[in-house]
Write a protein that binds this DNA or RNA. Structure first.
Lengths: 344, 344
DNA sequence: TTGTTAAATGATAGCGCTGTCATTTGTCAA
DNA sequence: TTGACAAATGACAGCGCTATCATTTAACAA
């Protein structure tokens, strides 16, 4: 960075004061056109770029939008991030990503790191922050959006969906298609997964089909391999199963592969429903039913809510429910007549 | 942030000067034990945390390690990021992630944004930066690691592998298993994919099997769905194909699903080889051969190289080749005898 | 005791920008 | 012409920290 150009250098070149150059950059409408043009030209000619640290120190503000997510590996968050990055493109903000790795402590630490930088806005994942995190968030003097889930008690704003309702709807779909012994496969067991389990249990109880043996969960991170393993575990507990609701699509794909290996016919003998509707679900063999969540839009909306608030606009809807959609595909087309069916 | 505690407040509470408190925090060995203890106690009691902007302005340095990757959606980079985050845990650095979205312009812009913050180190993806980007990198006064690929002309340090060699090895593997009409499916066509294509072409020419009709590429981002589509495109060009080298595992999974649908038997009639060896390859049906790359280690090593250089240690190996491994699975077990085979 | 050196601490001056208020210039009605 | 007010520009201080150099204190040999 050969000898850094600073505000004063530009000011000297143009023959105005430093503060005028600063104004041209930040509030050009306060400066006369002739001066503005000369300054703009000099900025370009000298290649001046403001120092973010000095700016932050002087103004107690940065152009940073902080985003805290629990995982960079998980496809779900990739989609949200895509929505965020696409929406913020062209705006004078910079995304700063924090990876909490599903750790409450790491979330608290990162929140601390982020808030100390005085971001323009913050996006955090989930609604179950620790008491300490919530306190930090409430004290923060920037707009905040909690994403992924919705609840009654937003720190500031929220955009997400009810995972409990989404899971419930998936179970009702399976039931409507004639499946009865519907299992639940869950990995990671983060708050979202737990909500889905609650939804599953509620509906299964309502329709009188709840059986604890059908619920298989693990704290391990969800993978395709884990889908195979959980299915094996499930079948070792009971062969009285005719469908499975997988807590996400990786598991569902794993279950499908394992079914193929075991010559369990999907959907004739066994229904499979995933969650999130990743792109691959539609082209699996057979195509797999899943619960579509609007992840990219979630990211986009979160950014829009932030910039609206930064611009001082009133938010008429601080909690946005993006809903979900059961995308029914062949994997839950229904069991074939009992007499012709072979139990797994 | 109720009334921010600053260095001077701590200094006053302890009865020392501000600079002493600063020293306790940054170079405790310069301060006597008694003072150090009193200061540490006061820092904890008052909940003091340094202001990063002030620190950056005064010291012309930040604790930021910048990471530029072309995609947050791509599993390959997720793994690298995991390696990075794991290795940096517990160290006094913060990862700042930039998403270039495979855009040269965006990479230049982000490089500018990042360098202006005077990071402690920088990780950039690939070795084909634009001339402007390379100039920026060479002028930067922090250590830099280029990851993913290796080449002769490192800006500073490199850790990656030869994608050309990896692809070549995959083709030789297919050849050794008896496949002859080996196709190449490529999406995105970023520099890494192009290198693999070069490796493919080289080896195919060497063994006298090169046929342009067997090469199907697209600039679209790679997905499972695209794998299906590319296979369909390939088969519409020529049915004289007995294996496919997919440029990444998403495509390979798509190809597998499409083969299942078309009742093309893998590996009896058709071999499939992927690239990257994502977790799901091992549990697909049949399990899919792939080229394993050490992505997590790549992230880890990149961080280690940075911190070694930050600590002033000499780097004896500025270009690290992490290599690759052909993980042979059932999907490339070989064709069944010709008389019994049914062409796709 | 004195001088010499190292260890510990402090005073001072910014880092590069922006907030605040003051001043100058321009505009227009009376 | 004058005064009133808005528009345009500037002076100055300071954001919270650290680099640099100066000073004080401690330690110890001569």
């Amino acid at each position: 960075m050969a000898k850094k150009i600073k505000l004063a250098d530009v000011a000297e070149a143009v023959g105005v004061s430093a503060i005028t150059v600063s104004r041209v950059l930040r509030k050009p409408e306060l400066v006369s056109e002739s001066v503005r043009l000369r300054v703009t030209e000099a900025v370009a000619r000298l290649g001046y770029v403001p120092d973010p640290a000095a700016r932050a120190l002087a103004s107690a503000r940065t152009d940073v939008l902080g985003v805290l997510i629990p995982s960079v590996t998980n496809n779900v968050f990739s989609s949200v991030l895509r929505g965020i990055y696409n929406r913020v493109e062209g705006l004078p903000f910079n995304i700063q990503l924090g990876n909490t790795r599903y750790s409450v402590l790491e979330e608290e630490r990162l929140l601390d790191v982020f808030l100390r930088q005085r971001p323009s806005g913050l996006i955090v994942s989930g609604i179950d922050q620790s008491a300490r995190s919530k306190a930090l968030l409430r004290q923060a003097d920037c707009p905040i959006v909690q994403i992924m889930e919705i609840g009654d008690d937003p720190v500031d704003m929220m955009v997400g969906l009810s995972h409990r309702d989404a899971a419930g709807a998936a179970i009702r779909h399976l039931q409507a298609r004639g499946y009865r012994r519907i299992a639940f496969l869950g990995a990671r067991m983060d708050p979202r997964t737990r909500s889905r389990l609650v939804g599953y249990e509620q509906v299964m109880k309502e329709i009188g089909l709840l059986d604890e043996r059908l619920i298989v969960t693990t704290p391990r991170a969800s993978t395709v391999t884990l889908g195979c393993e959980l299915l094996i575990e499930l079948l070792s507990r009971t062969t009285e199963v005719d469908a499975v609701f997988c807590n996400n699509d990786d598991l569902a794909i794993g279950v499908l592969f394992e079914c193929q290996r075991r010559r369990i016919s999907v959907p004739d003998d066994f229904g499979i429903c995933g969650f999130n509707d990743l792109e691959m679900m539609a082209v699996a063999n057979p195509p797999l039913t899943s619960v579509r969540t609007n992840r990219e839009e979630m990211g986009r909306r979160a950014i829009e809510m932030l910039i609206a608030r930064i611009a001082g606009e009133p938010i008429d809807e601080p909690v946005v429910d993006l809903g979900f959609e059961i995308v029914a595909r062949h994997s839950t087309a229904g069991l074939r007549p009992r007499e012709a069916r072979r139990r797994p």
